[in-house]
Amino acid sequence: MRLPRHRDAQLHSIFERAMFEQRHSLYGWGSGLFALALLMCLLYPTVRSNPALATLHETYPKALRSLFGITNLATGTGFLRAELFSVVAPMLVIVLAVLWGGDTIAGEEERGTINLLLSNPVTRWRVLLEKWAALLAGVVAVCGGLAAGLAIGSPLARLDIAWSRLAAAILATALLGALFASVALALGAASGRRGLARGVASLLAVASYLLSSLANLISWLAPLKGLSPWYHALGVDPLSRGLQLDHVSIVAAMTLFAAGVAVVGFERRDLAV
């Protein structure tokens, strides 16, 4: 099953090793997202040619429309938002990000490899930041698969969406991934427990999605939607409105904050045997 490697990889820094270790899931998830994006695009012509679908969304209950970002499916933007960017693509990216992020420190700790690693003349914060950088690079690379799928599928199926809008939506997706990867990293680094890190980070991701989607329906939630990173990333509809720097920078700031929490939490703690 596993082919022997005939050459030793050139791994030196912690960043290089982290990239090497996540390569299999990076290839897998990257090509999965590529295929998903491409397939979705290729489905679009059949939807567009079906006039009933153009008004279908009006028959949906408001809650469903809001939850799944369903508008006019007969436009390229409306179709892609509903089928890809409302839930599916960002959730997939977040799932992977949380799996990776939770494993970054807590996984090394549970496997006992962190003892040897930290007995080297390196600071904990350097270990953490190098691994964080690899984590972000991995999330970006996986979103590269999504981007590639759209880059091929969009002109092919004549989705008629500006490149800048597509790029803005992909960036927002990647940022959400980066944020929840960092949240899972911080939880794992502060607790040393992988399961807890992954569980709580996933919960937060789902909560932020629900908050962003339901804020339009439930009046008392509306003032809270600014707390949801999902709202700032995808809730503001980058696919039709393009990059909105003010919202995007809020998600970026949350990501940096999570990384800061990770450093502090990791520095202060006793490591498990």
Partner: peptide, 30 residues
């Protein structure tokens, strides 16, 4: 730690790496 060599009691090694990869990684960190 630059002046210390350490052998842990509960040994955890990077399972997917070869011995050379692990050792050159740590040598680089040192």
């Amino acid at each position: 730690r630059r002046r210390v060599g350490y052998l842990p009691g509960e040994l955890g090694l990077y399972e997917q790496l070869t011995a050379r990869e692990i050792l050159s990684h740590f040598a680089y960190l040192r």
